[in-house]
């Protein structure tokens, strides 16, 4: 293949991943709203370019840690989307056997070490994963995703210092969608922002337009190469916007409608699609939609977990009687 067709194939692959994430989350939100999926879903619709642009530069052996808004990270890392859909429906055969739900999806087979219901909690975990990778001389790195809200938690400061101190192979990815739940994060954050804080601890930071997957891909490629080369941790500050509310049922009345409308006009999927063959784009999007609709139907048809499974995998010594 020529390098031009290589580049096209890479772009189509990224388009496919973004389309799959969006289709997955459209189904997940609909299932939550209809009550088919119990509990809560945090959609990352509009932010797909960050997950996909970063994970396009990761290998299977690399690990990621994720957040409450983690479907995109998981799918971009290669997690089993059908198992994920079953999981958020609470069904047997889900990624975690129905014990985790949307906010606790993990797929260790592809290095996805878990979404997390606690803001910022993935940061220390990513640091330790990188330390273990170094200790066992594995050829791998860790990408640690978190939101802009996480930079106000203590583990963020601890983790930046820690990773820089031990020069750990971690790519920190701050998905700055401007909001922490219902609050504009700038209204509760003093100082110069996430990148300034990271740099204060000695982690070099690079800003990127997270709504442009090609920019994310290019910058992530550069940062990942530095990390693999032993250069220590890097910080990627990805500006983006959360199209939907905080959860699938939050109407986000706390922000002007024009702001969200403007973000929709910067759609990471359409921006990449504009550079590709329209027929191919249509086919990719149709395939993604069909795949995820199929997963949702499969989830509704899947059996519930055996009630006895509530008592397994607690611990070996002193397990529930």
């Amino acid at each position: 293949m020529s390098s031009a067709s290589n580049e096209t194939a890479r772009r189509v692959a990224m388009l496919r991943d973004m389309a799959r994430i969006r289709a997955f989350e459209r189904e997940a939100v609909a299932a939550m709203r209809s009550g088919e999926a119990p509990g809560v879903v945090h959609p990352s619709i509009g932010q797909e370019g960050v997950a996909v642009g970063v994970c396009a530069n990761l290998r299977r052996a690399d690990r990621i840690t994720s957040t409450h808004r983690g479907h995109g990270h998981a799918i971009a890392k290669g997690a089993d989307a059908r198992a994920m859909m079953l999981e958020l429906h609470g069904r047997a055969g889900g990624s975690c056997g129905g014990k985790g739900g949307s906010m606790h999806i993990a797929d260790f087979a592809v290095g996805m070490l878990g979404a997390n219901g606690v803001v910022g909690a993935g940061i220390p975990i990513a640091c330790g994963a990188a330390q273990a990778i170094r200790l066992t001389k594995e050829d791998a790195i860790v990408a640690c995703f978190f939101g802009d809200g996480a930079v106000n938690r203590g583990p963020f400061l601890e983790g930046m210092n820690w990773a820089a101190l031990y020069r750990l192979p971690v790519l920190f990815v701050c998905e700055d969608n401007g909001f922490a739940a219902f609050t504009r994060n700038s209204a509760v954050t003093a100082g110069g922002g996430p990148a300034v804080r990271a740099e204060a601890c000695g982690v070099p930071a690079t800003a990127v337009d997270g709504e442009d997957v090609l920019s994310v891909d290019a910058v992530a490629a550069e940062l990942v190469a530095r990390i693999r080369g032993g250069g220590g941790p890097q910080f990627l500050h990805a500006k983006c916007y959360r199209w939907e509310g905080h959860t699938g049922t939050d109407a986000a009345g706390y922000r002007p409608a024009e702001e969200a409308a403007a973000a929709r006009g910067r759609d990471c999927i359409r921006r990449l699609a504009a550079l590709l063959d329209p027929e191919e784009v249509a086919a990719v999007e149709a395939e993604a939609a069909a795949e995820m609709a199929g997963h949702r139907a499969a989830a509704m048809a899947a059996p519930w977990p055996d009630p006895g499974a509530a008592f397994t995998d607690v611990q070996d010594a002193g397990a529930p009687a």
Partner: peptide, 28 residues
């Protein structure tokens, strides 16, 4: 000092890093 590691006073990360390291096959 790769196996006996003196850390910063960062209890959240001492504990959380232990978990990450366990999930990647070591026994912290």
């Amino acid at each position: 000092t790769d196996r006996i590691v003196s850390t910063p006073i960062s209890e959240s990360t001492i504990m959380g890093a232990g978990l990450g390291a366990a999930l990647c096959g070591t026994r912290p």
